[in-house]
């Protein structure tokens, strides 16, 4: 039987909440990435309350709801820089917020290193593609496609 040294023992213990440490991050990579991710989840969440609930109210509740949405409706909205900015912020904040949320969930449940790695690669690749595609669509929208 090997004796457990004091430093090994420290690692096995879950420290009390709000224990003061120089580096809150567990990764030991010398950054506070996890803390910034935590703060980002809260700041983006707060903004998304207005953006997403506003979006759902306009699209699904007001004025005929989903039944009135078609190409012409989108063209009318995106004629205004206000709504293009709204949708762009909503896209980026929701996608990054959701991606970080899923990163945490993968870290929680995928126990094998390889599984965890590849799931996160899949997540980051698809998120990147969604952000690029969504951004391009907002910036290059062409109402004259209707002819």
């Amino acid at each position: 039987m090997t004796a457990v040294t004091e430093t090994q023992q420290d690692r096995l213990v879950i420290e009390a909440p709000r224990t003061r440490k120089k580096r809150p991050s567990q990764s030991g990579r010398g950054t506070n990435f996890e803390m910034y991710a935590w703060i980002f989840m809260r700041m983006s969440g707060l903004l998304l309350v207005f953006l997403v609930l506003g979006h759902l109210s306009i699209m699904l509740l007001l004025d005929g709801g989903v039944q009135r949405i078609n190409f012409g409706f989108v063209a009318g909205r995106w004629a205004s820089p206000f709504w293009r900015t709204w949708d762009l912020m909503q896209l980026w904040l929701a996608q990054l917020h959701g991606t970080n949320g899923l990163r945490v969930i993968i870290n929680d449940y995928a126990e094998r290193d390889g599984t965890r790695f590849w799931l996160k690669m899949l997540l980051y690749t698809s998120s990147f593609l969604v952000l690029v595609l969504g951004t391009l669509v907002i910036f290059t929208f062409d109402p004259d496609l209707a002819g």
């Binding site: 078609n70 896209l91 929701a94 959701g98 949320g101 969930i105 290059t140 496609l145």
Partner: peptide, 29 residues
């Protein structure tokens, strides 16, 4: 959270059809 994330994925794709043609967008709508 997971549910909304997967819907967002589908939703960005269906909205992207406005760049294809009004007709394909109207059909998905």
């Amino acid at each position: 959270g997971v549910l909304i994330f997967f819907f967002l994925f589908a939703h960005v794709l269906d909205t992207a059809l406005v760049r294809v043609s009004p007709d394909s967008y109207n059909r998905i709508m």
